[in-house]
Design a protein around this nucleic acid. Structure first.
Lengths: 200, 200
DNA sequence: ACCTGAACACCGTTCAAGT
DNA sequence: ACCTGAACACCGTTCAAGT
């Protein structure tokens, strides 16, 4: 019952502490410059200690990416709820939420969407990625039910919608779009998308 | 006049040789696993030799990214010419060309579009990036002139169009879209885009 | 002008050993 | 079960010195 936990002998919380330090290191210098030994130092354990919790550096990066997908899913779920019932408003709310999320954490988003997580890889990661995609899919499906969106495979249409946003994030994070015009551009893209998806 | 160049004493071609080896290493293992020392070994020089040509590893990566933008520009220029005069066909040709380019060189595209090249960085790189964007911009501007595209800032519309494609590439390179349905999805996205950009 | 060889400080990973 | 310390093979970067 040592709830005060001055340090439960064997640190006790190493996995979470490493992830937290990893998030900080990631935004500070990108996955490239993240050092496992440095994280261990930050957290106050020997450089070999992380091994118990992460088989190697990639495993820690994967865990960071997965945590990112979970944050993203929560963010988008909240935005979709706040966006109201009509398709246009909900899509715009999702778009703004996603673009904010991604431009605030460029290194994390690079890590989440760099083409490293193909094939068999970590299927937990793939599943987290797919779950984060659900709010957009639901928006499209509801839009179809309400007659605001053409028929067809909702997953395919949602992927198109998501692709637009992902692309805008890439443009923004590369400085091809300055912050001032980004929101304008997001609005424009959503409007074009809504028009393009409208039944005719 | 030793045109036969069995090795012009001081290698002679080190910069280009390193870039070529770098391209191979990049596709083999990503920027993360690219080692300057390994490139030097591949090319047959000491590990300190690259320093004359690239100040550090990042400089070599930047040069690879720049070469990538130049390849991309050439690819898109050719595709735009082959795509014909009408907006729909030209946009589809651009889209297919870009998606092929990017899915064939995932690591290069990650390098080109990872959020590392912001701020002042290498402005040659930024310029190469902007030049590669010109064919899409021209397609939109011509589309406006021909009455197939709504008015407004053509650069903003072109960025929306580019964003769609970039997003599809991310989806494809992450295994969220399998190769079989990718072309279908590209066609769908272009169609939605064309409809969304149409004057009404 | 271009390259080499030795050196420095760092890294990821492994493994016996400690508690 | 969890962590340490020493060890290994590698890395990027620097700098005197060679040609």
């Amino acid at each position: 019952m040592t709830t005060s936990a001055a340090r439960p002998y064997h640190h006790g919380n190493l996995r979470e502490a490493l992830l937290a330090a990893g998030e900080r290191a990631l935004e500070a210098g990108g996955a490239q410059n993240l050092s496992l030994r440095e994280l261990a130092r930050d957290v106050g354990v020997s450089h070999a200690a992380p091994r118990r919790h992460f088989a190697d550096k990639q495993a820690l990066l994967d865990a960071l990416a997965q945590a990112g997908y979970e944050q993203l899913e929560a963010t988008l779920t909240a935005a979709a709820a706040a966006g109201g019932a009509d398709f246009d408003g909900r899509l715009l709310a999702l778009a703004r939420a996603y673009v904010s999320f991604a431009t605030e954490r460029p290194a994390l988003v690079d890590l989440m969407f760099a083409s490293k997580h193909q094939a068999g890889a970590a299927s937990e990661l793939a599943q987290a990625g797919e779950r984060s995609f659900a709010p957009a899919l639901a928006a499209v499906a509801d839009g179809q039910a309400a007659g605001a969106v053409v028929g067809g495979d909702p997953e395919r249409l949602a992927k198109v919608a998501f692709a637009v946003l992902q692309g805008l994030v890439v443009l923004a994070n590369n400085g091809l779009v300055d912050d001032a015009s980004l929101d304008e551009l997001v609005a424009e893209a959503v409007q074009r998308l809504v028009l393009g998806l409208r039944p005719r």
